[in-house]
């Protein structure tokens, strides 16, 4: 299969790489870029949200995005969220309320939450549940996840 070249921004840095066109963004992140925060939990079916990253401001399942589709896009992953060792308010809230158990879904849930807060800085609990309904978690029952997102949202300045 002929390789294609893709140039895109990842966590603020531009990268250019060549890849077989049938590879997904998730595979490229994990295998080529060493960014293993995004996880595969459903086998690339887009059912679990564990591979959620932010693409041009929107949450996407990176297992459903082919590498050719990211040309010119800006991608944010969990690794880009905490600058200089300081946790993002969402990350801090997840730690502080105990919303993390096994942690396998956590990077995807946090990225989906970030995209949600980008669009709706002050969501109701209902909005949070709706916004995270594509992210499966088997450990927490979601109670503390919703708490964490609410707390992080409350810390944002009101517009």
């Amino acid at each position: 299969m002929k390789s294609i070249q893709a140039t895109f921004e990842i966590n603020g840095h531009e990268v250019t790489l060549s890849s077989a066109p049938n590879r997904t963004l998730l595979e490229v992140l994990r295998q080529d870029l060493g960014l293993t925060g995004a996880k595969d939990a459903c086998g690339g079916e887009g059912e679990c949200g564990a591979c959620t990253v932010i693409m041009d401001g929107k949450a996407v399942n990176s297992c459903l995005v082919f590498i050719g589709q990211v040309q010119g896009c800006s991608i944010e992953t969990i690794e880009g969220l905490s600058g200089n060792g300081d946790l993002h308010p969402l990350q801090r809230a997840f730690v502080e309320v105990g919303a993390v158990q096994c942690g396998y879904c956590t990077p995807g849930v946090i990225m989906a939450s970030k995209a949600l807060l980008n669009e709706n800085p002050h969501p109701s609990d209902e909005d949070i549940r709706e916004g995270l309904s594509g992210n499966l978690c088997r450990c927490t029952g979601y109670v503390k996840i919703v708490d964490a997102v609410r707390i992080a949202a409350e810390q944002q300045p009101r517009r």
């Binding site: 925060g37 730690v95 993390v100």
Partner: peptide, 23 residues
Amino acid sequence: KSELRKDAWDKVTGAAQYVADIP
């Protein structure tokens, strides 16, 4: 008391290494 899990930092930053992540 409500102590913070020490493994949570690595888990919220994507640094935690599961078997599939170990280089």
